[in-house]
């Protein structure tokens, strides 16, 4: 039997009084990859912001369960510790905080929550080397400040590295393909594919079909005006690529 990982029921959300999500229903099982496509302004990024607890958005109706627990009742850091990971569309630069210090703090917070011992500095660096090798990423960024001065491609790769380290049960990739050249896109997509397992699931938010050449989704949903208006398999993405979003706008 399939394990239900995420259950979104009738989710409504607004920002600054403006209603963006107008009743999202979506069930995600372990092992699945769901692509969410749609025109600009449909609410794709709002969905990722609401699932991760971004304080700018207000949930006005509906519920979200993660592994049966009320996700919306948890503060953002608890959602992350429960295994929700967002690969940001615009990863934030944090001058003065080194990648190593940042990521080790993050890992150990998650471990503490799960009742595990913190990782030693040595064990942490070893794990980071392994993950970098797995993802074909150079380790020159370790001692730099988080995302500071990184190129667009480096920032997105760095998100995937953090995902590999934190081993989330639900990964949300928000427009991970935007601003990436084809080589960076391939590295990012291969990383996502290598991290896929029967126990975790991904939501891939994208405007274009291009990323889905590399990350094959089990389901494709079209989000328009705050609702999922169509669901299909990967062929739906190709159809959208050909015909555009005109029929949904």
């Amino acid at each position: 039997m399939q394990t239900t990982l995420l259950e979104i029921r009738n989710l409504h959300a607004s920002i600054a009084g403006k209603q963006i999500l107008k009743g999202i229903n979506l069930t995600i099982h372990a092992g699945e990859v769901h692509a969410i496509m749609g025109p600009n302004g449909a609410g794709k990024s709002t969905l990722s912001a609401v699932l991760t607890g971004n304080p700018q958005y207000e949930v006005t109706e509906g519920s979200v369960l993660l592994n049966g627990k009320d996700l919306l009742a948890m503060p953002p850091e608890q959602r992350a510790r429960e295994g929700v990971f967002l690969s940001f569309q615009y990863p934030v630069e944090i001058p003065g905080v080194s990648m190593v210090n940042f990521l080790r703090t993050a890992m150990n917070e998650k471990r503490k929550y799960a009742g595990l011992e913190p990782l030693s500095a040595t064990a942490f660096l070893k794990l980071m080397r392994e993950k970098r090798a797995l993802l074909n990423m150079a380790d020159k960024l370790n001692n730099r400040s988080v995302n500071e001065g990184f190129s667009g491609g480096e920032k997105k790769k760095n998100e995937i590295l953090q995902m590999a380290m934190l081993q989330p049960c639900l990964s949300i990739l928000d427009e991970t393909d935007s601003g990436l050249d084809i080589d960076a896109l391939r590295v990012v997509a291969e990383g996502v594919n290598r991290l896929k397992s029967p126990d975790n699931a991904s939501i891939v938010i994208t405007h274009y079909q291009r990323l889905l050449d590399y990350i094959i989704p089990d389901f494709v949903h079209v989000l328009a005006d705050g609702q999922i208006v169509k669901t299909g398999d990967k062929s739906l993405a190709l159809e959208l690529e050909k015909n555009g979003y005109a029929e949904f706008e």
Partner: peptide, 14 residues
């Protein structure tokens, strides 16, 4: 930056 860090499991005070 605070939200980014929270999304990476770090409590707001920390």
């Amino acid at each position: 930056a605070l939200f980014y860090m929270q999304q990476r499991c770090i409590a707001p005070d920390d």
